[in-house]
């Protein structure tokens, strides 16, 4: 087994070009578990941890967007400027694992694994984030919606490195809630990210752990936008709130497994979405 430890993005890209099937590792909080369980037996590994460019943060107020390096650990998203502009991402980051995991795990790894329970992913989805990929001779930016293609499957091509993700700064309430059977350090049973865009009068709702991949509730979003003026701070009637949750539940596609039941998950996303819409309108 070979392990390359490039110090620059350029070197990392050269390394992936030379060996497109090499296994990338950032924090290792997903990959090492898979290796320990023998689900994956990489022969060549490229470690990205020393590549500082992958930890950069670019806050572009003029264009209302933030670009976060794929290797930035979650712990650095919990507070500070990222949290100020992207509170939902900060909340999602805070729910990931334990302090040890949050100081190693990254969005790049969450995207790389592409689990439906990945906590950063509903936020990326609700915010219509862009995933920036680069290879030795080209780069591309694709929508998060095109990046996630199935259960633990994504659109990354061999030789490509996820360098960053770009998220818009949205004016309006946003939040992330996650149900687990423990008060911390737990894999999501069901989760929800809700983002209100007051300028454009739209709402985005993305659900985690209730389908093969993250689910965007587009029908409910446009239904709600037609019912209420999202540009203004409105109170949503109890009936409307009830229906909002019901519609969210209908758009979810949960399954029964050892962590929970489909019925509970469907119920939970409805409750979370209703509570978050209420919170959004209380602000």
């Amino acid at each position: 087994m070979s392990v390359l430890v490039p110090r620059t993005l350029q070197d990392a890209l050269q390394a992936t070009a030379a060996n497109p099937s090499a296994q990338l590792i950032q924090g290792g909080t997903d990959l090492m578990v898979e290796i320990n369980f023998n689900h994956r037996k990489p022969t060549d590994v490229i470690a990205l941890r020393r590549v500082d460019e992958l930890k950069s943060v670019n806050i572009d107020i003029k264009n209302s967007q933030i670009t976060i390096g794929a290797g930035l650990p979650y712990q650095q998203m919990e507070h500070g400027e990222i949290a100020l502009h992207l509170p939902a991402l900060a909340q999602a980051a805070r729910t990931v694992g334990s302090p040890q995991i949050r100081s190693a795990g990254s969005i790049g790894g969450n995207l790389g694994t592409c689990s439906p329970a990945g906590d950063a992913l509903p936020v990326l989805s609700a915010l219509n984030a862009t995933v920036n990929l680069q290879s030795a001779d080209s780069s591309r930016a694709i929508s998060i919606h095109d990046f996630m293609v199935g259960v633990k499957r994504n659109a990354r091509m061999p030789g490509e490195i996820i360098v960053s993700t770009t998220l818009p700064i949205v004016s309006g309430w946003q939040g992330y809630s996650k149900v687990g059977v423990r008060n911390a350090m737990v894999i999501s049973v069901a989760s929800c990210c809700l983002v209100v865009d007051r300028i454009n009068g739209t709402i985005a709702v993305a659900l985690g752990a209730v389908g093969p991949t993250i689910i965007r509730c587009r029908e409910t979003e446009s239904w709600l936008a037609a019912q209420v003026d999202l540009k203004a701070k409105t109170t949503v009637s109890p009936n409307l709130l009830q229906e909002f949750g019901d519609r969210i539940a209908t758009e979810s596609k949960p399954i029964d497994d050892h962590r929970s039941t489909a019925a509970y998950r469907r119920h939970a996303v409805a409750v979370l979405a209703r509570r978050m819409l209420t919170r959004a309108n209380a602000q």
Partner: peptide, 16 residues
């Protein structure tokens, strides 16, 4: 929030 049910998942407010 960490003292409330749901902990870091931010699921609940005191009135829930």
């Amino acid at each position: 929030p960490l003292e409330i049910v749901g902990g870091s998942g931010l699921t609940s407010l005191p009135h829930n």
